[in-house]
Computed example of a mutant assay.
Amino acid sequence: MLKKTILITTTIIFLVVAAFIGTSIYTLYSKKEISVDPKLKEISGIEFDKQQRLWAINDGGNEPKLYRLNKDGSIAKEILVENAKNIDWEDMTQNKFGHFFLGDFGNNKNDRRWLTIYKIENPIDIKTDTTQAEIIKFTYPEMDGTPIKPNNRNFDLEAFVALGRHLYLFTKNRTEPFDGITKVYKVGDHAANFKAELIDSFKTCTTLEKLCWITSAALSPDRKKLILLDSTSIWLFENFEGDKFFSGDVSKIDLGIVTQKEAVTFFDDNTIVFTDEEFKGIGGNAYFIKLDEAKKEIIRKKPTSEKVHP
Rank of each mutant, 00 (worst) to 15 (best):
D230Y: 01
T207E: 00
L219K: 03
D222W: 00
F194E: 04
F245D: 06
H190Q: 11
G242I: 02
T215P: 10
N193M: 15
S251D: 09
G248H: 04
D243W: 00
S251F: 09
T232K: 12
W213A: 00
I214D: 00
D249L: 07
K195C: 06
F245I: 05
K203Q: 12
V250W: 07
S216C: 11
K252Y: 13
T215L: 03
R223N: 15
I214G: 03
F245C: 03
L228I: 05
S251E: 09
C205M: 11
S220M: 09
L198N: 03
G248F: 11
I199V: 10
K224F: 07
L226A: 02
I199K: 01
S251K: 03
F237I: 08
T232E: 06
K225G: 10
F202E: 00
K225L: 12
A218Y: 11
L219C: 13
G242Q: 12
K203H: 02
E238S: 12
A218G: 08
E241D: 14
F202W: 04
E238P: 02
A191K: 10
S231R: 09
S201T: 11
W213R: 12
T215C: 10
C212V: 05
T204V: 08
A218M: 05
C212F: 04
D254A: 00
S231W: 01
L226D: 14
W235F: 14
H190N: 11
V250P: 12
L228M: 05
F240K: 02
L219V: 09
E238K: 07
A217K: 12
F194N: 08
K244I: 08
F194A: 04
T215A: 04
K252Q: 15
F202M: 03
I253S: 04
N239I: 10
W213H: 04
D243N: 15
D249A: 12
D249F: 02
S233R: 00
F245W: 02
